[in-house]
Design a protein around this nucleic acid. Structure first.
Lengths: 329, 329
DNA sequence: CTGTTAGCGCCTTCAC
DNA sequence: GTGAAGGCGCTAACAG
């Protein structure tokens, strides 16, 4: 494996000059630069990144800690982050916290050990609550989840508002007994719950919400459970794609038809929501954009640590489909 | 940030001793070890990984280069790899090649630069073809995709056999004009095609296959296209979850009902395949197990570079659902 | 514009 | 069982 001194020797210059050329500095003659570049190519020289990182104290690695990689929302966010990061010569270390605050803490520690340039995190409620207390040795950008008063860069959906619009749409379609099932571990679930409650209250309707672990299985279970209790709901709302999936499975098990027997709506415009007859009404999130905004925010913060805290709020789009339509009275 | 010499000072020992304790070596008195450990805790000392990696020439990082992170198959593989890797104190660098051989080559280069301990790769056809020519400076385990004669550790499904069984099942249900739509860029797609062709030939039926880029949109397009041509097919098979999704969307657009007007089957037991009435017949892959087997194979290879090449073949399970049932003649 | 040199923080022989 | 000392390969002052 060729080293920098081999290149220097080959090109007839000092190691410092090689280093300068590789760093893209201008203070080098074109002729010298060319000789170095030739030598690099001739020897197939690759800088040792460990040495570079040790010496330069920079790292060019970012940590991505997602709440649940199986959630297609986070998959797409990861894709965007990965895309943009590599375009900017940064590496991405992927961590999947599985909605587990302990795993999250472990990974945050790991990121500290790695001395990463920055971290993108979708925190659980517990970690979010502790956030102001801890001081992280790296720039941190939150994605998908944060509180109104969180002091950190963040990229989120207009959760409360989107849920309000979704709920209002259902009410306008004549639905009344609307049950909201949401993920217990995320601020996002709670904010969407707020929006739902506001919409219900404004129309003089009673809210009914159930918190579940944010998995399809748990949502399915909760829905099954609820179906055994009278009075039966008009309508279910799922606070994210996984939960919506679980609800849909449960309703299918008992052969309820949409929207005649029960209406249905939720978050995340996943492909299957169009496939299930007659189409499931959802709030579509600009998922790739969310990831892109997060990594861009992080890179800005890295470049300019002193800049003021920013929050990017993206708007969810209501896609009204058959599952929420006015039922034949 | 505390350094090793601070710990040494605090504990009243030399840096060498601290290093030994941290390396878990036995050649240290229990009393000394305890003093060092106390000092580590007192100073909240974290070894500098860049320095450690430079000095030790080890890295404890593995690269995971997946063909398409949006494909839930690879999402789940990633989850398993990440899980097991962190349990074994290894980091995972995630790369998404988007079925693009150039990106793949770029990432493989990157992995070399990173001096990773090993790489898990789901190669495109092109990269797979070049594999024997290139000599990688790290252990390499293929996942999901390899040829019969590929000289590398690999974890794959019994693709050809599974496709054979799936096709035979369809034929036994009375379907005859079966169209196979498959991903052009993967060895897996081609092997499943082989299985399909074998089954068709054995029953004296003509094969009809269409290669597409492995995305839902492309598969949807191809299906639409095919539907405009006479004679219309009995049945469609999709060679993976994304393609099956695209086919399903196209068939839904024209309101064809399963299995009366058209039968349908494919690979990957994704949640939505149960949701779409009357359930879509699939070959279920043991996705988490595939990822787990890959990372375990890699760790074995890292521990014992000389061991002979291994191939792990997992069996796909046929889940017969409504979409493939015998049609009322 | 270019070269010399002193470390970055740690591990690991080699002595004792 | 423990300490002293020499790098790992590179970057960044500082000279020239």
């Amino acid at each position: 494996m060729a080293q920098i001194k081999d290149v220097a020797l080959h090109a007839g210059v000092s190691v410092a000059t090689v280093s300068r050329v590789l760093a893209g500095q201008t203070a080098v003659t074109d002729a010298t630069r060319q000789r170095v570049l030739d030598a690099v190519k001739a020897l197939d020289y690759r800088p040792d990144l460990a040495a570079r990182r040790l010496r330069s104290r920079r790292n060019d690695t970012i940590g991505l800690i997602v709440a649940d990689i199986r959630n297609p929302f986070f998959t797409e966010v990861s894709r965007a982050v990965e895309d943009i990061a590599y375009q900017n010569r940064m590496r991405v270390i992927l961590c999947n916290a599985d909605e587990n605050p302990d795993k999250e803490a472990l990974y945050l520690d790991l990121m500290r050990d790695e001395n990463v340039s920055g971290v993108i995190l979708s925190p659980t409620l517990r970690t979010l609550a502790r956030l102001p207390l801890r001081d992280y040795p790296f720039p941190l950008v939150l994605v998908d989840r944060c509180n109104p008063d969180t002091v950190a860069d963040a990229v989120v959906l207009d959760n409360s508002d989107a849920a309000y619009r979704l709920t209002t749409h259902l009410i306008e379609q004549g639905h009344r007994r609307i049950v909201f099932i949401y993920g217990a571990t995320s601020a996002t679930g709670h904010q969407r719950l707020d929006g739902y409650r506001n919409a219900m209250a404004r129309h003089g309707l009673d809210s009914e919400a159930h918190a579940v672990p944010a998995t399809a299985d748990d949502a399915c279970q909760a829905t099954r459970q609820r179906l055994t209790v009278q009075p039966a709901p008009d309508t279910f709302i799922g606070s994210n794609g996984l939960i919506l999936l679980g609800i849909t499975e449960a309703l299918r098990e008992v052969q309820l038809r949409f929207p005649e027997q029960v209406a249905l709506a939720g978050f995340d415009n996943l492909p299957w929501t169009r496939l299930v007859e007659p189409g499931i009404t959802v709030i579509a999130q600009p998922v790739y954009d969310i990831g892109q905004a997060a990594i861009e925010l992080l890179m800005q913060r890295i470049a300019n640590p002193g800049q003021s805290i920013r929050r990017v709020v993206l708007r969810g789009e209501l896609l009204a489909r058959g599952s929420s339509m006015r039922r034949a009275a």
